[in-house]
């Protein structure tokens, strides 16, 4: 039951996001670009930090060897 509710909630969020994307994409191309672009900027910046941790990890391993 819990899982079912989760799936329904996720589906609703997805539907909302799709609606938003369709409306923004049709009438507000720049708004759409902002939504996609900002998400990308955040993800790239976060990925940079994760990469940093990977680099640190690699350096740590080489030193140990």
């Amino acid at each position: 039951m819990r899982n079912f509710i989760k799936i329904v909630a996720l589906a609703l969020v997805l539907a909302l996001a799709l609606c938003l994307a369709v409306i923004a994409g049709d009438y507000g191309p720049w708004y759409f670009a902002w939504l996609v672009g900002t998400a990308m900027i955040v993800l790239v910046a976060a990925a940079g930090a994760v990469l940093y941790e990977a680099q640190e990890g690699a350096r740590g391993t080489t030193r140990e060897e």
């Binding site: 672009g37 900027i41 955040v42 790239v44 910046a45 990469l51």
Partner: peptide
């Protein structure tokens, strides 16, 4: 160094 990394990438695309 970590803050710098995040900010630099964030700023470059922006």
């Amino acid at each position: 160094a970590r803050s710098f990394r995040i900010a630099a990438l964030f700023g470059l695309i922006s």
